[in-house]
Design a protein around this nucleic acid. Structure first.
Length: 729
DNA sequence: ATCGTCATAATTTTT
DNA sequence: TTATGACGAT
């Protein structure tokens, strides 16, 4: 796709091929002598290439065993990419090599040493939603008012502390009520995690760090084993990750860190650029190598980006250059409002496509997700296929998580997490009242919900109806557990789908959403069938479940060739021929909540830098003279626009693009092509015989208007408004 | 127990 | 604008 990548490798490499395709700085990095090394890799300077070639070089010329190498990334995408590239480079299978995300590697370590880490062998990984659910239960257990103590904020604060390595017990109890309450919640949350054998994302890292700190034998074994440690996106490491790296690299002192302080955009979730800034101080004798030659963008784009980022202070300093041409200037368009902006962008993409370019080489970038909607609407009425990044991911979907909860309950009946989720899903008449009784009793007796419900059935203390419902539920789970023997993962999944009643439940539902949910369930069976466990000895079902938690799966499936819409954050690491940087207004970008403190502004500026450097040949910057978003109006153009030297900018005059329809014209537009008789492109409608569909476009006026609908089951149809009898859903 | 309605709040996101 | 949760009605 658009993962920034350099030359493809299709031939096996010999030793000289490792260095020859590299420029001087890259070669220096790849063939650097032992010792700590920081590679300051600017945007588009070939950092993944340096990382993979470094590994190849170590293995091929320095006789380092692949098993003595630890390569860490942040995202699954990056780790897969790295693995694949190393495999091609070395042309040997590297299944056993330790390449992965911080979280996946820590998970692996905790699995291997669960006992030493103080975890039950059946510990579960909580994803974000699971964690929120648990925090909610804690808040309710403490009878805290959720309007006073917002759930998300509490969750955020807990994670914030954990990412700094602070346990609840490390926190002072606090002076004011806020701190005291947080402390209380955190303590209870940790207790619940311990009691239920739950591990959240931050816990994976913290627990591993503590394991290493406390257990000398294990620590030294790994310190000894990993002669060479490589980290990608070093500027994104948080406090624990950094300490973890320091600890594990201590014996051999070979830390190869690749990163870019100018692309540090995750400070708000605990990333510390300081880790990179102080590298030389923290690792005495460290070498620093700068990769400044850019292979991606035209000269104008690079110069402009350099100028913007130069406004930040306390950088390590770096200036991108290219030996390519200056290219076209950066274009700047002042839209009258957000609709004008969207139309301008889409018109430009259409013009560009006329030259035979690909849609997926064009990207629309914005600061916050809410901005995507207007683009989507305009793209839809222009009938341009598009894809929005950042939606739900596969394993995060409720229907998928429900099935997984069943599967979890099959392997460990005592998982309260799973029990809670599906005891009454699909609805089987076990209401809150019943569950509350079980929960309360379980808490008193310190037993699992499953055990407790067994006891409660036996004691007959619930109403007869409830008792029999709970019994039926247990029998259902038991019979599925019995059916597991001798089946493979795919068969188990299928069996669960059918016998839990989940499949039937979603099939009964009407609507497009239910259809896609059923599709997702089928896709889950597929995924289970194709799942190949990493550790052969281990239970493949358990591995599948952890896989689901750690790799939340693909983003929503994209059509082949779509215009790409995403936030600036998710654009990091990607590149496109044509980039539109939209919504450049003060308050929106830089975001109002970052404006207070200089550090906030600097991070926003880096975000701007990231956005600009995504473009290969054409960068267009847009701002609106008046934009409404939620209840706010944004009017002032972003300060970042002013930071780009005028010589690189070409202002696009609004008059050159005839449509500039503020209020008056806009309402007219609305009646002609935008909205007819209350119908608008993008709306979901129902038709007597064609079922449900999405309005694509409208033509004409009044009852004679023709309306173009894409039906779920019948495809595209053109209908006359007056006769179609469409019902908006 | 379940369904529908109303109010509310809303950067950025990976694991 | 939309998603979520609380609350009340059936």
């Amino acid at each position: 796709m658009h993962l920034a990548s350099d030359t493809e490798y299709n031939i096996e490499m010999n030793v000289s091929d490792i260095l020859t395709p590299l420029n001087e700085a890259q070669q220096q990095a790849v063939s650097a002598p032992p010792g700590p090394l920081l590679v300051l890799a600017g945007a588009g300077s070939g950092k993944t290439r340096v990382l993979t070639h470094r590994i190849a070089w170590l293995v091929r010329t320095q006789e380092v065993s692949p098993l003595a190498i630890l390569a860490v990334t942040f995202t699954n995408k990056a780790s897969h990419e790295m693995r694949a590239r190393i495999e091609t480079l070395l042309d040997i299978p590297i299944r056993n090599m330790w390449v992965g995300t911080f979280h996946a590697l820590c998970y692996r370590l905790l699995r291997l040493h669960f006992e030493a880490a103080g975890l039950p062998s059946s510990f579960e990984v909580l994803d974000n939603n699971d964690q929120r659910g648990l925090v909610r239960r804690v808040l309710r257990g403490l009878e805290l008012d959720e309007t006073l103590w917002p759930l998300r904020q509490m969750q955020w604060m807990i994670n914030q502390h954990k990412e700094e390595g602070r346990r609840a017990t490390d926190l002072p109890e606090g002076r004011d009520v806020g701190q005291q309450t947080l402390h209380k919640v955190y303590v209870h949350y940790e207790n619940e995690c311990r009691r239920l054998g739950l591990v959240d994302f931050a816990e994976l890292l913290l627990r591993t760090l503590e394991l290493f700190r406390q257990n000398q034998v294990i620590r030294e074994a790994y310190q000894q084993r990993f002669e060479q440690i490589l980290v990608d996106e070093f500027q994104d490491t948080n406090s624990i990750q950094y300490q973890w790296l320091r600890l594990i690299s201590k014996t051999h002192n070979n830390l190869f860190a690749v990163g870019d302080d100018d692309q540090s955009i995750y400070g708000w979730r605990g990333a510390r650029v300081e880790n990179l800034l102080h590298f030389e101080k923290d690792f005495p004798g460290a070498t620093v190598i700068r990769l400044e030659q850019n292979y991606r963008s035209s000269g104008n784009i690079l110069n402009a980006a350099n100028a913007v980022i130069a406004k930040n202070v306390g950088r390590l300093g770096k200036e991108l250059w290219t030996d390519g041409g200056a290219g076209t200037p950066i274009r700047l368009y002042s839209a009258s409002n957000e609709i004008d902006e969207a139309r301008f962008v889409i018109k430009n993409i259409q013009d560009w496509l006329k030259d035979g370019r690909r849609r997926d080489d064009a990207a629309i970038l914005y600061r916050s997700n809410a901005q995507s909607r207007i683009f989507e609407e305009e793209l839809m009425s222009a009938r341009l296929p598009y894809q929005v990044y950042g939606g739900m991911r596969f394993f995060e979907r409720a229907e998928i998580k429900n099935v997984l909860a069943y599967m979890r309950l099959l392997t460990s009946h005592d998982s309260d997490q799973a029990f809670d989720r599906i005891v009454n899903f699909p609805p089987r008449g076990i209401g809150d009242k019943t569950i509350d009784v079980i929960r309360e009793r379980a808490r008193q007796n310190e037993k699992s919900l499953w055990q407790t419900s067994t006891e409660i059935i036996a004691s007959n203390e619930l109403p007869a109806r409830a008792t029999s419902r709970v019994r039926e539920f247990q029998q259902c789970i038991d019979s599925m557990t019995n059916a597991m023997g001798g089946r493979d993962l795919g068969e188990i999944t299928e069996h669960v789908l059918v016998h839990s009643g989940i499949l039937a439940h979603y099939k009964e539902q009407r609507g497009e959403r239910a259809i896609s949910q059923v599709e997702n369930l089928e896709e889950l069976v597929n995924a289970a069938r194709n799942f190949s466990p990493e550790e052969v000895e281990e239970d493949s079902l358990a591995q599948f479940l952890s896989h689901a938690a750690l790799e939340s799966g693909e983003r929503q499936e994209g059509e082949d060739d779509c215009v790409q819409l995403m936030t600036l954050h998710s654009a990091k690491g990607l590149e496109f021929q044509l980039v539109f940087l939209c919504g450049m207004e003060e308050g929106l970008f830089p975001h109002s909540r970052s404006i207070q403190e200089p550090r906030g502004i600097e991070e926003e500026r880096r975000l701007c830098y990231v956005g600009m450097t995504r473009a290969r040949e054409q960068l267009t910057i847009c701002h609106a003279n008046s934009r409404r978003l939620y209840r706010q109006v944004y009017t002032r153009r972003s300060r970042f626009i002013g930071e780009i030297p005028a010589e690189y900018i070409e202002e696009i005059q609004a008059t050159r693009f005839a449509y500039k329809p503020p209020k008056m014209a806009r309402t007219m537009e609305k009646t002609t092509t935008y909205s007819v008789n209350g119908f608008t492109p993008g709306q979901q409608v129902r038709h007597k015989s064609f079922g449900e569909g999405t309005i694509i476009s409208l033509e004409g006026q009044g009852d004679h208007a023709r309306i173009n609908v894409n039906f779920v089951d019948f495809g595209r149809k053109c209908l006359v408004c007056a006769y179609a009898n469409l019902e908006v859903i």
